[in-house]
Design a protein around this nucleic acid. Structure first.
Lengths: 197, 197
DNA sequence: GGTGTTTTTGAGCGATCACTCAATGCTTTT
DNA sequence: AAAAGCATTGAGTGATCGCTCAAAAACACC
């Protein structure tokens, strides 16, 4: 059977992403991928070249999805700062079974590969940097709208904000009780909203 | 040659810890351990039973060292809150070559093993919990000394503080530029010190 | 329905994995 | 200095790793 290529490829990539996200690069074997993608080794290699390349494609897929979700969230908010606050609180509202209820895949990826796979590590840092620059742009918009003082340091705020998101999602990963997650997200969101003029 | 057992064992454990800390559980092979510990496979297994057990011992060694360092730091400070602030800033001052200039081993361990090795994951969470309870006890002392309001929620503050430490150390892991690390640590420390009555 | 092209298959490749154990030292006891 | 007691050795275990490729199956076109 010839696959309707782009469609099935997207499906397979999404499944690979979930598996890699959950188990990490080193702990995921080709056997695992064969079972999850419902593909034999030959097909996997015909379609994705290597385990490393499949991981890179999965990471890109994760990044694009995450960034799109973030941008939508920010656009729908009543203001830049409100959007960022809502972003934090939305993690705390993730339902128990949600696959996103764990650490950011980029965080996990960097921890997993920084000292063993420079190619993956570098791409991961690139993606983290791009998301951070989205945060910085949002702080810039807040300044332009008079929501933040004109002398606020957007890059510094973005770094701080990203650190908060990373930490919050690591708590999800840990399985911290829901009420403590809500408190933590609330603390972070309040701190952010106190910057408002 | 018969080893002076407890001494050499400590040396070996420290070397194993460094290696596991750097590469992670799954990416570290027995070959790597043989080279780092200067021991042949037979000796390693005679001394440590299994790779998993050696990892657990390394993790315990890390925990004990880290906890001791933290307690000394807190004792030497002029007040509980000052000690916690100093703890944050001390990470930012770590020299470029320092092996500690990366993510906390407990953080990395949980990311690496949560969905592949329940035994390790559980121990890791236990250690993280114990460190958090040290933080909570410090906030309690701050309350007793009148440094914090009597109705402050020590556990909530401890969770927030630990999240900050995790995030700050992840930035070290990422190789974020020194000046940005200093800013981030400063932001976190100031936020903490603003709790002071 | 025959032909040419493309895709899928899965047994099996060499390398490496975590790990074992009979043989070999070294040290202590006598 | 011989014997007994242990820690150390490293070649070798079966299993699994990421990956290949010749054969088979499924398709498109005429």
């Amino acid at each position: 059977m010839v696959r309707a290529a782009p469609y099935d490829r997207e499906i397979a990539l999404d499944a690979a992403m979930s598996l890699f996200w959950d188990k990490g690069y080193h702990a995921t074997s080709l056997k695992d991928l064969e079972a999850t993608l419902h593909m034999k080794p030959g097909s996997i290699y015909a379609a994705f070249c290597s385990k490393e390349n499949l991981y890179l494609l999965s990471l890109e897929h994760y990044f694009k999805t995450a960034r799109a979700r973030l941008r939508t969230q920010l656009q729908q908010a009543s203001s830049p700062l409100a959007g960022l606050g809502e972003h934090l609180r939305s993690y705390a509202r993730l339902s128990q079974g949600d696959t996103a209820r764990q650490a950011c895949m980029l965080t996990k990826s960097l921890v997993d590969t920084r000292s063993t796979d420079p190619v993956i590590a570098q791409k991961t840092q690139e993606y983290l940097g791009q998301i951070r620059s989205d945060f910085a742009a949002t702080f810039d918009r807040a300044k332009a709208l008079g929501e933040l003082p004109a002398d606020a340091d957007s890059n510094r705020l973005a770094r701080r904000f990203q650190a908060n998101v990373t930490a919050l999602r690591f708590e999800l990963h840990q399985g911290t009780p829901q009420d403590e997650i809500l408190n933590l997200a609330e603390d972070m969101a309040r701190e952010l909203e106190q910057l408002r003029i």
